[in-house]
Design a protein around this nucleic acid. Structure first.
Lengths: 243, 243
DNA sequence: AAGCGCTTCTGACGCCTTGTCATTTCCGCC
DNA sequence: GGCGGAAATGACAAGGCGTCAGAAGCGCTT
């Protein structure tokens, strides 16, 4: 197979374009409106051509999931590497996740569809597995931070409690809050004030204070820290965008 | 239209049977394997007959969601009405949710599919709306418990924090933990020990302790309480089943 | 027990989407 | 300008959905 550089680029671009168009349709009109014909018409190539890139509709979704995941992991890693106390870094990760959710409102959809509809034959599993592996790595990174907190003496856990349990709690509440938030349009008002992040961070602060993870929220102003952190991330993003 | 009591019963039974069969297929073989032909073959009636009960495949899923929801709400309400301090009742609800999740391993699936694929024309929305209304009612019930805790002086919230925020936190962490738990089969081991409930309750205890919601976990043995509560619910269920 | 009217059941039909593949078109190179 | 391989196309078969005209069933009357 001889393939010119020109052609390779074109193919790469089209691959991205397919995912991009699929994402727009999914977000704007929902899963039932997403079909290959539609994508084909919008990118201006025939259905057959799309199948040269992706094995099935679900495979396109899986690719979408990979793309978004990569972005999330990037923000996660960058937050985990911030200077400061372990608890500050956990807070930074919380902010990163929240910023990510704002930037990718349809995040859960592709993932859910893949989880529900993908089957052996129809999806290139390396895509999906790659995402799960990334998730696991993030989990491990978070565990590393908790471990450091324990080593420094910031956090003391009961003997029969694994440090993974703490990360599981953080993961759960973050996941749950953002999931509920992204589906909230369907929920009528529940009397919740402020943003998802406000509610979430209040509860996480309580949780980590309850564990006695120092510095406690009475000893350090995590609210102000989060605000700075958010601005920093958005500024970085803007700079990167302009570059 | 004249319809004998005999016939009405038969119709009712078939309606349930359809949902039951659909649930089994969904749980055993996943969404892609779930189709009307398949259901028809398994209940021994033609496709046309199913359409006399349900408007579409999604409508069957919606009915499944209603059925399961009803069971969840029942457990929730019963837990919320237990005697004891507000915080005990919150703990009882946590146990109820956990028992529910054990009994209905595929719980999230039907709900997710409906949320992702239902569109105006294809689902009788009163089904779905009914579920959302139930969710809201549960949310309100939980808010009532928090309110009572505040009135009793068990819990003091900062002035700028609504009591709904606390319920949102509880909801999020419960939802998140169980959702992750139900998808866990895909996740490789993350080093988490014990059941989902163990991890979840540890973190909720920390969270509510962090809020200073009395009696604190150092003042009351919520772990033992949860154990009793679980046994009570299961015993009730058994008794009911035998009746 | 035959006929009638109403209810219920059925499966063939039309439509839509999916994924494939034989054919056509494109493109670089001789 | 024509050759060969890569790429694009769209017709096709397969299969699912929802509908509906007609068949079958049931209860009541004569």
């Amino acid at each position: 197979m001889v393939r010119s550089a020109r052609k390779q680029l074109e193919i790469r671009e089209r691959e991205d374009r397919i995912v991009e168009v699929a994402r727009e349709i999914l977000l704007r009109e929902g899963f039932p409106a997403l079909n290959m014909d539609r994508i084909a018409r919008e990118i201006g190539w025939s259905r057959g051509t799309i199948y040269q890139h992706y094995a099935s509709k679900e495979d396109v979704l899986a690719a979408m999931m990979v793309q978004t995941h990569a972005r999330r992991v990037e923000l996660f890693d960058s937050a985990a590497k911030r200077p400061g106390s372990p608890r500050q870094r956990i807070a930074a990760i919380g902010v990163a996740i929240d910023v990510f959710m704002e930037l990718h409102p349809g995040y859960f959809k592709a993932e859910q569809i893949v989880a529900l509809t993908a089957d052996q034959s129809k999806v290139r599993w390396e895509r999906v597995d790659h995402c799960y592996a990334q998730d696991n790595r993030c989990f491990d990174v978070a565990c590393g931070i908790v471990r450091e907190a324990i080593e420094r003496g910031d956090l003391v856990l009961p003997e029969d409690v694994a440090l993974e349990t703490v990360v599981f709690g953080l993961w759960s509440i973050n996941f749950g809050a953002h999931f509920i938030g992204s589906a909230m349009s369907k929920w009528p008002e529940l009397g919740i004030q402020g943003t998802i992040y406000d509610g979430l961070s209040f509860n996480i602060l309580a949780m980590l204070d309850g564990l006695g993870w120092r510095p406690l929220s009475t000893e350090f102003d995590y609210r102000a820290f989060a605000k700075e952190e958010r601005e920093r991330i958005l500024a970085d993003r803007l700079a990167e965008h302009e570059a």
